[in-house]
Design a binder for these strands. Structure first.
Ligand SMILES: [Zn+2]
Ligand SMILES: [Zn+2]
Ligand SMILES: [Zn+2]
Ligand SMILES: [Zn+2]
Lengths: 141, 141
DNA sequence: GCCAATATGTAATAATATAACATTTTGAGA
DNA sequence: TCTCAAAATGTTATATTATTACATATTGGC
């Protein structure tokens, strides 16, 4: 069985701290994943001066499940699911061209991975599934 | 359909260049993934002086399918499959404790992801599946 | 041997992430 | 309301990962 639900409790957005709210809003307004340093640059005018201000906010947001880290990009996206609709392991399809990210769930895949882990007695903490490629729009352009 | 087989042709190991052979041997002897800089340190005595010597060798080895990059670790492992036994998309189970990596294939998962891509008209170039957790040995220790 | 493709050497720099330490804010309980 | 510990923030320095740019050397088909 997976442990991916460990942090799936959502927090009321009103409980976000100032820095967390700034970072979250920035990611929500973005149409592609952003690196911590890109976020920092965008928030200079709001008083952000150092990478740690961004990284600390991101850590919390990821922990809350409001933001996902894309490992193959070293970048972050706001969760695409409605708030209060927590989810376990998820897959991301990332367009190399426009950066658009499609977040989707596949229970059968999660089940199979959980099964593999069970068979191997591997304690599964986090599942990373990222598809790199080209979205329909960009493929047609 | 996935494009993951793009680089699945194996190359005879005898065709490796000097630097590629050094890097590949280092990874084969390692019992956990290594970062490019750790590899560099290990190869100082063999004349390696700069990161690029390692990164360039790694690029080729990954292209040949002899080495895999673990995106969630920024590190590299030698392929666990017998040479000449090419494979498509693969999953990695990574022990956070001892670093051991278990490389495995699941055709059903690959099929489901390929299907999702087909439905969404997403041109799939590369599939990344990484499980983070604790291996049986470490869980019992 | 010629020559283009490939590989290598090296220095500089970019991009991503964390350590260490000081200070401030928050909020639960006395 | 006061107290105090936890959490959040501010700031500087540093560590880690990766690439750009340019020069030189090696390889292998022709
Ligand atoms: Zn999500
Ligand atoms: Zn696109
Ligand atoms: Zn492999
Ligand atoms: Zn282990």
């Amino acid at each position: 069985m997976s442990n991916d639900h460990k942090h799936d409790h959502r927090h009321d957005l009103s409980t976000l701290t100032r820095n967390q709210a700034f970072v979250f809003e920035t990611l929500q307004n973005a149409k592609a994943p952003m690196s911590a340093y890109t976020i920092l640059d965008e928030l200079r005018d709001d008083g952000f001066r150092a990478p740690l201000q961004v990284y600390r906010a991101l850590d919390k947001l990821v922990e809350m499940g409001l933001v996902h880290r894309l490992e193959s990009l070293n970048a972050f996206v706001a969760c695409d699911h409605p708030e209060g609709d927590p989810h376990g392991a998820i897959a991301f399809a990332i367009c190399e061209d426009c950066g658009q990210v499609d977040e989707f769930a596949d229970d059968e895949i999660v089940a199979r991975l959980g099964n593999w882990a069970k068979t191997k007695k591997f304690r599964l903490d986090k599942t990373i599934i990222e598809l790199r490629g080209t979205c329909e729009t960009c493929a047609n352009a």
